[in-house]
C-alpha cells in the first residue's frame, strides 16, 4: 500500500525511556486477531496503558496529557521480539510517524520503513539529550529532516545526522513502496525462477 510522503517532520515527542521494548508490549498477541490493518492504535502498549479493568494507568506516558506529538522516543533496542507488523501499524494508527531510539531490532525497523514510519537511530548520548530536552519542556519540538538525514532538538539547536539507504530514502520521500518496484521487474524474476534447483 502506498503511503504518505515523508520529508520534514516537526513535532513534539512522547518519551518512553525503557530499554528492550518488545513488540509484545507494543501490541499484545491477543489483539492480533483482526483481518484488516486499521484500529490497532487503540491497543498500542495495551498492558502498560490500561489496568485489567480497562481503566487507564495514570503513570504511563500515553495517559499523561502533557506529552503528545507524532514522534515516539524509545530506549535502546526498540522493537525486539516478534515480527508482527501489527506493532508498526499500532504505532502508525495511534498517530506517530517517526520513532527515535539509540538501537532498533531488525524486523521492526524494516516493517516501519515498509509502512511509512521513519525509524531514526541516534547515538546514546543524543538520545539522552532528547530525553532531557523533553523533561525540561514537554513542548520541546524535534525536527526530523529526511532529505538532509538530520534530527534537531529545536529548543537547544543540537543536531545529529542519521543513516538510511538511498533506495529507502527515495521511496519514503516519494511515497513509493517495494511492491511497485517488484511488480515492475517480474520478467527478470521469472527468468531467475526458471533456473532455481528447487
Amino acid at each position: 500500500m502506498a503511503y504518505d510522503k515523508f520529508t520534514i517532520l516537526t513535532s513534539t515527542a512522547v518519551p518512553l525511556p525503557i530499554e528492550n521494548v518488545d513488540t509484545d508490549q507494543i501490541i499484545p498477541a491477543r489483539f492480533l486477531k483482526a483481518t484488516k490493518r486499521e484500529g490497532f492504535g487503540d491497543n498500542l502498549f495495551r498492558d502498560w496503558r490500561y489496568n485489567g479493568d480497562d481503566t487507564p494507568k495514570q503513570d504511563f506516558v500515553l495517559n499523561n496529557p502533557i506529552y503528545s506529538g507524532k514522534i515516539l522516543v524509545g530506549g535502546h533496542n526498540f522493537g525486539s521480539g516478534s515480527s508482527r507488523e501489527h506493532a508498526a501499524w499500532a504505532i502508525y494508527d495511534y498517530g506517530f510517524r517517526c520513532v527515535v531510539s539509540s538501537f532498533f531490532a531488525d524486523i521492526f525497523k524494516g516493517n516501519s520503513l515498509n509502512i511509512g514510519i521513519l525509524p531514526v537511530q541516534v547515538t546514546p548520548e543524543f538520545l539522552d539529550k532528547i530525553f532531557l530536552a523533553i523533561e525540561a519542556d514537554p513542548n520541546a519540538e524535534l525536527e526530523v529532516n529526511l532529505p538532509e538525514q538530520s534530527i534537531t532538538i529545536l529548543s537547544t539547536g543540537e543536531s545529529e545526522s542519521f543513516n538510511i539507504n538511498g533506495y529507502k530514502k527515495h521511496n519514503m520521500t516519494n511515497g513509493f513502496d517495494d511492491i511497485d518496484y517488484l511488480q515492475a521487474m517480474k520478467g527478470e524474476i521469472k527468468v531467475f525462477q526458471e533456473e532455481r534447483i528447487y
Binding site: 515480527s83 508482527r84 507488523e85 501489527h86 508498526a88 524486523i107 524494516g110 516493517n111 515498509n114 509502512i115 513502496d177 517495494d178 511492491i179 517488484l182 511488480q183 521487474m185 517480474k186 524474476i189 525462477q193
Partner: peptide
C-alpha cells in the same frame, strides 16, 4: 521472519 508487507511481496513476486 518477515512482516506482513513482505508477505505480500513474496506472494506477489516471490521476492
Amino acid at each position: 521472519g518477515i512482516g506482513t508487507s513482505e508477505v505480500e511481496m513474496v506472494l506477489s513476486s516471490q521476492c
